[in-house]
C-alpha cells in the first residue's frame, strides 16, 4: 500500500516537468526568452574573450540589451537600411582567429556552447549592423561646437595625455582637434541613441520579467 502511494506521487510530481524556456522580457509584440538571453551571454563571452557569466545580474543586462536590439531592429526595417556585407564580419573573425591563443579558446567555447562558426559570423554581422546603423541614424543630427572641443581639450584630453605620457610634449589644440571631434561625435551619437532608446522603450512598454530571471 505504502509503495503504491509513493509511486503515484512520483508520477504526479514529476509530470510537472522542468522549465526549459520562458519569457524574460517583452517589447510590444516581441519577446526575449531565457534561452536567447543565455545565448547572448555565450556570444558575449566569445566576442569579449572572457569567461561565461551566468549570474542574475548578467542575465538582466543581457535581457536589457536584447530588448534594445529589438527596438533597433524595428527601426532598421522601417528605415530600409542596407546592412554591411558579410565580408566585414569575416574579416573581424579572421583577425581574432589569427591570434593562436585566442583562436584556440574560441574553438573550445564554440564547441562547449554548441555554436557553429557560421552562427558566429551571422551574430557578429548583426552587431556590426547595429553599430553602423546607430551611427547612420543618429550621428547626422550631432553637432560639435568649437567651444566644446576646446573645453574637452582642456579638461579631458590634456590631463589624460599627461597621465599616460608624462613629460612628453603636449599636442596643441589644432593638432588634437580632429581626434577630439571624433570622440565628441561618438559621445553625442551614443547620447542621442540612448535618448531615442528611452523614448522607444516607453512607447513600446518594454518590460523585464524579474521573477523569471535565474
Amino acid at each position: 500500500m505504502k509503495r503504491t502511494v509513493l509511486a503515484l506521487a512520483v508520477v504526479t510530481l514529476t509530470a510537472g516537468g522542468e522549465i526549459i524556456d520562458r519569457i524574460v522580457g517583452a517589447a510590444g509584440t516581441d519577446v526575449v526568452t531565457l534561452s536567447e538571453a543565455r545565448r547572448y551571454l555565450e556570444y558575449q563571452s566569445v566576442f569579449q574573450n572572457k569567461e561565461l557569466d551566468l549570474s542574475r545580474q548578467a542575465y538582466r543586462e543581457a535581457v536589457d540589451q536584447l530588448l534594445n536590439q529589438v527596438l533597433i531592429r524595428r527601426e532598421i526595417e522601417i528605415s530600409r537600411y542596407t546592412p554591411p556585407a558579410m565580408s566585414e564580419a569575416e574579416k573581424r573573425l579572421n583577425e581574432w582567429m589569427a591570434d593562436k591563443d585566442r583562436g584556440l579558446k574560441m574553438q573550445k567555447q564554440l564547441a562547449a556552447y554548441g555554436i557553429t562558426e557560421d552562427d558566429l559570423r551571422k551574430r557578429l554581422l548583426w552587431y556590426i549592423t547595429v553599430i553602423r546603423f546607430t551611427d547612420y541614424r543618429f550621428s547626422p543630427g550631432v553637432q560639435v561646437r568649437d567651444e566644446e572641443i576646446e573645453e574637452y581639450y582642456k579638461s579631458n584630453f590634456l590631463p589624460q595625455f599627461r597621465k599616460t605620457s608624462p613629460g612628453a610634449p603636449e599636442p596643441s589644440l589644432d593638432e588634437s582637434r580632429a581626434a577630439i571631434q571624433q570622440i565628441l561625435v561618438q559621445q553625442k551619437t551614443t547620447q542621442a541613441t540612448n535618448e531615442w532608446l528611452n523614448l522607444a522603450r516607453q512607447q513600446a512598454r518594454v518590460r523585464i520579467f524579474e521573477e523569471a530571471l535565474p
Binding site: 514529476t14 509530470a15 510537472g16 516537468g17 522542468e18 522549465i19 526549459i20 524556456d21 520562458r22 519569457i23 517583452a26 509584440t29 516581441d30 519577446v31 526568452t33 534561452s35 536567447e36 520579467f209 523569471a212
Partner: peptide, 22 residues
Amino acid sequence: LARAIQRLWATLRYEDISVDAA
C-alpha cells in the same frame, strides 16, 4: 521553441508563457 514562444506572445493574448519539459 523560442520562436514558438515568440509567436504565441505576438497574439498579445498572454501575460506570461513558459515551457516545461519532462
